[in-house]
């Protein structure tokens, strides 16, 4: 699959956490046109905070083939300090330190490689702050 163009398009979100804050306070990493909270169409562009808390998590032990070499790995749903919700892998952390409510920082990491000859995908992963 030729994914390089699709990957390049997402760089502002994946690399720089460029998101939106709507007038009603709703913050989103994914580009939206209308706030799901109030229907507001007014927003400002913001850089989303790279600090947050874990809302839920799991340890993935049967990943899709692209992620097999990382298994087992943790993923978590995170609420950033400015209120954006996102899903991220948790890296460099002991499984026993991953808890609902744990503080995390998001760091730039390699997400996956598209085979031996495809592009390398980067993005953010969470690290538990002890």
């Amino acid at each position: 699959m030729a994914n390089s163009q699709r990957y390049t398009r997402e760089i502002p979100h994946r690399f720089r956490f460029e998101g939106q804050k709507f007038r009603d306070g709703y913050v989103t990493l994914a580009n939206r046109y209308i706030s799901p909270e109030s229907g507001s169409k007014e927003f400002e562009s913001i850089n989303i905070s790279k600090k947050g808390k874990i809302l839920s998590y799991t340890i993935i032990r049967t990943p899709a083939n692209d992620y097999k070499l990382l298994s087992p790995y943790a993923v978590a749903i995170i609420e950033t300090s400015d209120g954006a919700r996102l899903t991220a892998m948790v890296t460099d952390s002991k499984f026993e330190d991953i808890k609902i409510g744990a503080d995390v920082e998001l760091v730039f990491r390699k997400i996956k490689e598209e085979g031996h000859s495809g592009i390398i995908n980067y993005g953010y992963k969470a690290v538990i702050i002890l």
Binding site: R14, L29, A30, I60, T62, P63, A64, Y67, L70, Y73, V75, L86, T87, A88, M89, I111, K112, N121, G123, K125
Partner: peptide
Amino acid sequence: YEAYNGVT
């Protein structure tokens, strides 16, 4: 935003 980050 989900599958990219390895969630199943």
